[in-house]
Simulated assay, not measured.
Amino acid sequence: MTFELLEKLENKINQAVETIALLQMEIEELKEDKANLAGKTEQLQSDNDRLNAEHQQWQERLSALVGKIEQAEENA
């Protein structure tokens, strides 16, 4: 009976070791995914900042043009 218990314990330990190994591999994959996503997030934030700056420039140009049109209409 003791031998059977030791075998069961050994099997459970082996299963636990295998599960731990699989979980460690999964953790490594998730760490890689996290790093990749952080890089993509940084790139997207940079793109967003650039596009916002361009948008602001266009807004300023349009405001200037509208101002010139209004001034021309007043002078006419």
Rank of each mutant, 00 (worst) to 15 (best):
L51K: 06
G39L: 13
Q24K: 10
I20T: 09
N75A: 12
V66C: 07
E54N: 15
E7D: 09
L22H: 12
K34D: 04
K34S: 10
R61N: 09
Q56D: 15
G39S: 02
D33L: 14
V17E: 15
Q71M: 05
R61E: 15
K68V: 00
Q43S: 06
E28Q: 14
M1E: 11
V66W: 01
N48C: 11
I20A: 15
S46A: 12
A35M: 11
Q57T: 02
D47K: 03
N11W: 04
N36R: 11
E7Y: 05
Q45N: 09
A72P: 00
Q57W: 01
T2H: 08
K68F: 03
Q57S: 14
E4Y: 06
N52R: 08
T41H: 06
Q15H: 13
D33Y: 02
L22V: 13
Q57E: 13
K40R: 10
E73D: 08
N36E: 05
Q71W: 03
E29A: 11
K12D: 11
L23P: 03
E54I: 02
W58Y: 08
I69C: 00
M1H: 08
K40L: 12
L9E: 08
E73P: 02
L62P: 06
E10C: 06
Q43R: 12
W58T: 01
W58V: 07
I27C: 05
H55E: 11
Q57V: 08
D47S: 08
V17D: 14
L65Y: 07
G67F: 02
D49Q: 10
E7L: 12
M1D: 10
L65N: 03
N75V: 02
E70Y: 04
D49Y: 07
K31E: 13
Q43G: 01
E73T: 00
L23H: 13
H55T: 04
N11A: 14
E29Y: 10
Q15L: 11
A53P: 00
Q24E: 14
S63M: 07
L5A: 15
L6E: 10
L30D: 08
H55F: 03
I13D: 13
D47A: 07
L6D: 10
T41D: 07
A35P: 03
I13R: 15
E73H: 02
Q45P: 01
N36Q: 12
I69Q: 13
E70A: 01
N11E: 13
K8S: 10
T2Q: 15
D33K: 11
Q43W: 06
S46T: 13
